[in-house]
């Protein structure tokens, strides 16, 4: 495991690396606050049940209320993280996930231990010990995470890629000049190509003005890198130009 800024890079025995983006203290704090709200909501339901029980015995009702609050506050994290593979409701909403620090599957003792050590992290007040520990450790781990060998990462959506909509089999005027297309492939780096592709993927979510400006800048960069004759670029908008460049770069 290698830690770079907010990312943990894991290397498998097969020699392949994959990265896990660590969750920051703010997002973890937000998730925790959401979880507290959940526990309070459940506690309110348990309180209603206790008040109904109070019809039979006030003593039993009071005992039930105390135990249910304790069980909910201690057990909520353990049960949800176990059932949802490292996620509580708060973590789920903020797309965070508890993971084994080595990238292996999470075990129940790990989940239980990191939750059992919450009271120590909360010392002396307001999660000061845990918060300071998170800021001091490379993997942003609180004391419970260190003991249980866990990390909290940003969960990724495993959505299948779809490039059909992005790179349709349409006529590409840049391909009419093969030697310049080849030069474009040679000169444009992996990073610049990635930026152009990423811009195309995310263009529908942009403001119209920002979209025009962004594609103008990207198109200007590519035009500066390799200049195509006017007959190949005539009538092409900046966005269409970038699309054609990406088509040249990503489809040989």
């Amino acid at each position: 495991m290698d830690v770079r800024r907010n990312t943990v890079v894991a290397r498998t025995p097969e020699g392949v690396s994959f990265s896990l983006e660590l969750a920051g203290p703010v997002s973890r704090c937000m998730a925790f606050l959401l979880d507290i709200c959940c526990v309070m909501a459940m506690q309110a339901v348990a309180g209603k049940a206790a008040s109904l029980m109070g019809i039979l015995s006030m003593d039993m009702a009071s005992g039930f209320a105390v135990v249910s609050y304790f069980v909910l506050s201690m057990g909520y994290g353990m049960l949800t993280e176990w059932a949802w593979r490292g996620q509580t409701l708060g973590k789920r909403l903020l797309r965070l996930r508890v993971m084994d620090a080595d990238g292996l599957a999470l075990t129940f003792p790990q989940i239980a231990l990191r939750n059992l050590l919450r009271p120590v992290d909360a010392l002396p007040a307001m999660y000061l010990a845990g918060g300071l520990c998170m800021l001091a450790t490379r993997r942003a781990q609180r004391l419970g995470d260190i003991a249980a060998r866990t990390i909290v990462v940003r969960a990724r959506e495993t959505k299948e890629p779809d490039l059909d909509g992005l790179l349709p089999d349409k006529y590409n005027s840049l391909r009419r000049i093969p030697h310049l297309a080849a030069r474009l492939r040679q000169r444009v780096g992996v990073e610049a190509a990635g930026i152009a592709l990423s811009a195309l993927t995310r263009r529908d979510g942009m403001n119209p003005e920002d979209r025009v400006r962004l594609f103008a800048e990207i198109a200007a960069y590519f035009k500066e890198t390799v200049t195509f004759p006017p007959e190949a670029t005539e009538g092409l908008s900046d966005e269409r130009y970038v699309k054609n460049v990406v088509d040249v770069l990503y489809r040989t």
Binding site: F18, G103, R156, T158, P161, V190, E191, A193, S198, T201
Partner: peptide
């Protein structure tokens, strides 16, 4: 290739299978 979405998708798959 620096196509971020596919790399992230594959990293997610490989990470889960590795675990």
């Amino acid at each position: 290739s620096s196509e971020k979405n596919i790399r992230m998708y594959l990293e997610g798959l490989v990470a889960q299978a590795y675990g």
